[in-house]
Write a protein that binds this DNA or RNA. Sequence first.
DNA 1: TGCGCCAGGTTTACCGGTAACGTAAGACTT
DNA 2: AAGTCTTACGTTACCGGTAAACCTGGCGCA
Lengths: 331, 331
Amino acid sequence: MKANLEDIALAAGVSKMTVSRVLRGGTGFSAETRDRVMTIAQRMGYVPNRLAAAFGSDQASTLVGMCVPRLTSGLFGHVLDGVDRALSRLGYQLMIGANNHSAEEEEAWIRQVIAWRPAGFILSGRIHTPGTVDLLREATGPVVEIWDLTTSPIDLSVGFSHVDCGAEMAQFLLRRGRRRAGYVGALARADVMGAARLEGFQSTLARAGHPLVASEVLHDMPGFYAGYYGLETLLSRQPRLDVVYFHNDEMAIGGLAYAQSRGIRVPEDLGIAGWGGMEAASILPRRLTTTIVPTTAIGKAAAEALVARLKGEGGPEVTVIPTRLEPGETG
Amino acid sequence: MKANLEDIALAAGVSKMTVSRVLRGGTGFSAETRDRVMTIAQRMGYVPNRLAAAFGSDQASTLVGMCVPRLTSGLFGHVLDGVDRALSRLGYQLMIGANNHSAEEEEAWIRQVIAWRPAGFILSGRIHTPGTVDLLREATGPVVEIWDLTTSPIDLSVGFSHVDCGAEMAQFLLRRGRRRAGYVGALARADVMGAARLEGFQSTLARAGHPLVASEVLHDMPGFYAGYYGLETLLSRQPRLDVVYFHNDEMAIGGLAYAQSRGIRVPEDLGIAGWGGMEAASILPRRLTTTIVPTTAIGKAAAEALVARLKGEGGPEVTVIPTRLEPGETG
DNA sequence: TGCGCCAGGTTTACCGGTAACGTAAGACTT
DNA sequence: AAGTCTTACGTTACCGGTAAACCTGGCGCA
């Protein structure tokens, strides 16, 4: 890691400012100078030092911090992928972290990352500690909140409404004639988004005169096991349900497995609906009734909104990426 | 983002060097001075500037770069999670990227990230371009190669042998009486690890006198769909198979779905084996025969090996994290 | 009395870029 | 012919830490 701008400047017989301008593709040099500098930089194997650049100018950071609830979630994997592709195409680097659905862990993470003076942040969710909000206000870069649309975003937001997802599914199940609905959730008190879907689901059912009959919200991670055992518990408490809405598709598939193991016919005896749109859901013997979330598109839109703001291009403060209810065959 | 060391120094009536020492928990100051500095730093809401620190001292970077093949892989999500937890506990920050199974994309990514002078790198896989190797040799930090054990690692390596995974599964299936095995893969020519498993599988079968009968390696992503249609294609070409080994569990589950849709009984008519150990595999009506990969443990071990090296503690160059064959009920 | 030593600091130089400003030579204008 | 503009650079100062060298007063001790 030897050569720096000075070395190149010396070898090319120009000042390091000229080298800097050439390498950043600016103006103010002749074609001849450019070629000479480029050739020498190439030959010397010059590796730029973004640390110095970002430190010296505080406009030059190409670092974006992103915090997700969990790195092991299939959905967030796709969001990350969308963000990563868009950002790397635009020349930015991504620093990530997980907050385990905790606003306090999010603040701790932001406190670490903000020390690197990133150009901006992408955060999942709308719940933040007061400390987080202070930190982000002082850090002068754009902040994109994704996943749930916030009524009053810190800065920018990209996503959809979880309440609406729940409400839409309730309406759909009512239209299919379901009258005694249950709910199986996970991450009790930690996952605000799941709670929002339940709220939309529940209030829509209530308004239609067929209120939620029973619900079981586990403290576990929302995976296949939790869906399996969650449905078992729910049905043991309240066997007379005609449909169950799950926290997500993984849990719904777990629920399907439980139903199958007990000879419960789906959808004849019991309807099952998920949320999220994981790939596996579409390859089941009967396609899962669920809400498909355009995860990659959300990631891409978030990254692009952030970069547009950085470049002063200015777009909408709120970008809605609509979800789609997939009727499937289990609801 | 106002206060810096100088401001604190001024307010505390000491030099900024003393403030620096206090904040980093060094020595050379009285308890009284420490308390005064700490109080003032707290009150001023001091946010350290790691950019300046890393830039000025080149020992101080707490940045680790990690490159995975795909961010949408369930397995790598868990590896990332293991790395992230370990690193954040140890006070490091994680910069990630995906290379889409391409050594060229990996090099391009490293070229971007190395400009931030990270303390070290975690890379997935053993195949790198010559340019990558040069870059990493010049960057003086540790490099951990994970996922597959390399015969000659650049520096450190953590993982297991994919060839052995394939060989072990072949032996297991032979013991169960399988004699006409097929293989369904994905990511043709891109995923070296899958190819290694196939190699181990194939050569073990051959040595036992029951060579691989047919294989179908798709160019697609290794998901449920690919498994479904891959098995369809394979059986249309060669119906007389008694077991099929899949690239991973997702594909195997897709294959199970295909078998079920055609009334093929598993495992009576056809055995199915996967690889990876995704959670869904254990909740199927019949538990999937597969190889369980301790993903989180690999991530954790990689992070810890890297930090140990950074602190000059020196551990083993190669850490084996053994996989476990799960017999299941489909093989 | 003089010396060394230590705790508890301070001073100075530097890391490698970039912004802002300066300037000389030639082209173009009026 | 004088003034103005443009091109193609060069100079200087600075970002906020850290390493390393340097100071200084008080104390123990021969």
